[in-house]
Structures are given as C-alpha cells and as structure tokens.
C-alpha cells in the first residue's frame, strides 16, 4: 500500500472534516483510499458527483426510497459497508416519517448477499410486497432489469437509476476496503441522514423488539 505524502494527508484530513460536517459521520480510511486511487481531482469529482446523485435521487423519489435504491445498488456490488449504511439510513427515514419499521432489516443483508442475484431478487420482491412499498419496489425492479438484463432506459426514472448503478460501482472501488468485512451495527447511517440520538434510540429499540418477536414466533 502506497503511503500518502504530507500534502495528501492534509487533503484527506480536510475531506474527512468536511464529510463529518456535511454528512455527520467519518468515512474512516475510505477517503485516504480515494486519494491513493484517484488523486486529488478524482477524489473531489467522486465526492461532488456523489452529493449530486444522492440529492437528485432524493428529490425525485424521496429520502427513504433513494437510500433504499442506493443500498440495493451497493448490495449488488458486494459492498457490505454501503449496503448496511444506506439501508440503515433508509430505515431511519422510514421510521421518522411513519413511526414504523422499514421492511428490510439490516441484520438480514449479509445473508441476502450470499444468495444468487435471482434468489435475492425474489426475497426483495416478497419483502417489498404491498401497496405501501409499491413505488419503491417498482424502482428496485427497474433497477434490477437495468443492471442484470441490459434493459435500455425507457421510462421515468430509468436514467437516474442507471446513474445510481454506475456511480456506486465507481464508488465501491474504494469503499470495498471497509465493505469486505463490515457488519450491521458498525456502519453509520450513510447519505445525509444526520439522525438525532432520539431517533436512533427509538429505531433500535423498535427493531430489537421486532427481532425478538420474530424469534419467539419461529420457536
């Protein structure tokens, strides 16, 4: 691994501070890896395009669905860090907006990644069944076709979905250094969620209760 020089280290420190300020969390060694891989300009471009695509997606489909789509795109790339962090963020948005738990538990994500793409697609279809998640599911289904079936963009959000797929493939090149081993509970809510402690505590308590209820029902 190439060591960064003093200018590069200073740049990384500034980027980390900026991310902490704007997004509320520290990306750990990821930005150092970006500088190592893409240089200064490449890193700035990567961060700028990431902010653009996240904001555009959220404006188009709402925060909860945007974070779910990003999480699913990252799931297909095999980056545990991004799938856990973005689905956690989606769940916090959903909990904040509705007071209910999102359908995809962060604890189920690694098992989902061990499945084949077709198997996990079937599980996602069941998970997002019902009118409440119809719009989100439609977009996941379109994204699946665009990613795995060479579907050409044809309707409403298709180009935005293609941009999401393509951007997270590029980003995961560097996030994979944490994404190879990340586990639920060790990744912050990614994106620009900036959850309050009250929201995090309320969500964690509700999720734990749901998991315990599911375990009790299974025995």
């Amino acid at each position: 691994m190439t060591e960064l020089n003093i200018l590069q280290r200073t740049f990384v420190s500034a980027m980390r501070a900026l991310t902490k300020l704007s997004a509320g969390y520290d990306m750990g060694p990821i930005q150092e890896e970006m500088v190592r891989t893409h240089g200064y300009r490449g890193t700035l471009r990567l961060m700028k395009l990431g902010a653009d695509i996240t904001t555009t997606l959220a404006r188009s489909v709402g925060d909860y669905t945007a974070q779910t789509l990003i999480g699913v795109a990252a799931l297909w790339n095999g980056c545990r860090y991004c799938v856990i962090g973005h689905i956690y963020s989606a769940n916090l948005h959903y909990f904040k907006e509705s007071g209910r738990l999102g359908p995809l538990d962060e604890d189920s994500l690694i098992d989902l990644m061990y499945m084949t793409d077709e198997e996990s697609f079937a599980v996602l279809k069941d998970t997002f069944a019902g009118p409440e998640h119809a719009r989100t599911w439609h977009l996941i289904e379109r994204m699946y076709q665009l990613r795995f079936r060479d579907l050409d963009p044809a309707e409403g959000e298709d180009e935005l979905l293609k941009a999401t797929i393509a951007y997270w493939e590029w980003l995961n090149e560097c996030t994979i250094i944490l994404g190879i081993d990340a586990k639920p509970g060790s990744v912050p809510a990614l994106g620009y969620m900036r959850p309050t402690q009250e929201l995090v505590d309320g969500y964690d308590k509700a999720r734990r209760a749901a998991r315990e209820a599911a375990r009790a029902a299974a025995t």
Binding site: T37, L75, N77, G78, R80, M113, D117, S120, I180
Partner: peptide, 27 residues
C-alpha cells in the same frame, strides 16, 4: 459470480492487488 458477496470479494482482490486489468462481473 452471481453471488454479490463474492463480487465484493473479487472487487477487493482486484483493488487490493492492485490490477486495473481485472474486474468482477455477474455474467
């Protein structure tokens, strides 16, 4: 590989090597 967990493994390998002429795919 059709399993994302191993696409992540392959991405880590290609990145960590590092080898710009290597890449992982579903098909």
């Amino acid at each position: 590989t059709k399993r994302p967990i191993f696409r992540g493994l392959a991405l880590w390998i290609c990145h960590h090597a590092p080898d710009s002429n290597a890449r992982s795919f579903p098909s």
